[in-house]
C-alpha cells in the first residue's frame, strides 16, 4: 500500500480518492497507513462524491505588484473529511456554509483539488 502515491495518481486521473476504514467506516483524509479514529489498518479506497460545504475560509491579501488577493478555504466533504482547497471565483463571494463541488483542477501546472460554488 502506497497511500500518498495512490492519492496523487488519482488526481492525475481526475479522481479525488479517499480512504475508508473497514473497521469503523470512517473516511480518512489525508491518506495514511492506518485509521486515525480506530487505528485499524484495513483501509480501502472510494472516490469522493465531490459534494461539500465551506467550513471556514480566508482571503490572502497581496500587495498589488505581487498579484491578486486569493481564497483559501477549508471544505468538509459529504464523506466527513475536511481539506484545504480554493474556491473558484471572487474571494469576496465565499461564505461559511456555502455548498460547493470539489473537482480536480490545476495549480501551477499540477493537479489539485479545487471547488466551485454549486447552484442552489
Amino acid at each position: 500500500m502506497t497511500p500518498d502515491k495512490h492519492f496523487r495518481d488519482g488526481l492525475v486521473a481526475g479522481e479525488i480518492r479517499l480512504q475508508r476504514c473497514s473497521s469503523c467506516h470512517a473516511h480518512i483524509f489525508f491518506p495514511r497507513v492506518l485509521c486515525p479514529a480506530c487505528h485499524g489498518t484495513d483501509l480501502d479506497w472510494v472516490n469522493a462524491s465531490g459534494q461539500g460545504e465551506v467550513y471556514t475560509f480566508t482571503t490572502v491579501r497581496q500587495r498589488p505588484e505581487k498579484g491578486d488577493d486569493y481564497n483559501v478555504s477549508m471544505i468538509e466533504l459529504a464523506e466527513g473529511v475536511r481539506m484545504m482547497t480554493r474556491v473558484d471565483g471572487d474571494p469576496c463571494d465565499v461564505a461559511i456554509g456555502m455548498r460547493v463541488f470539489a473537482y480536480v483542477g490545476e495549480i501551477d501546472g499540477k493537479p489539485a483539488v479545487l471547488c466551485r460554488k454549486t447552484e442552489e
Binding site: F30, T58, V72, M83, I107, A112
Partner: peptide, 8 residues
Amino acid sequence: PYEAPYKP
C-alpha cells in the same frame, strides 16, 4: 504537502 499548493 496537502496544504502547500493553496498557498495559505
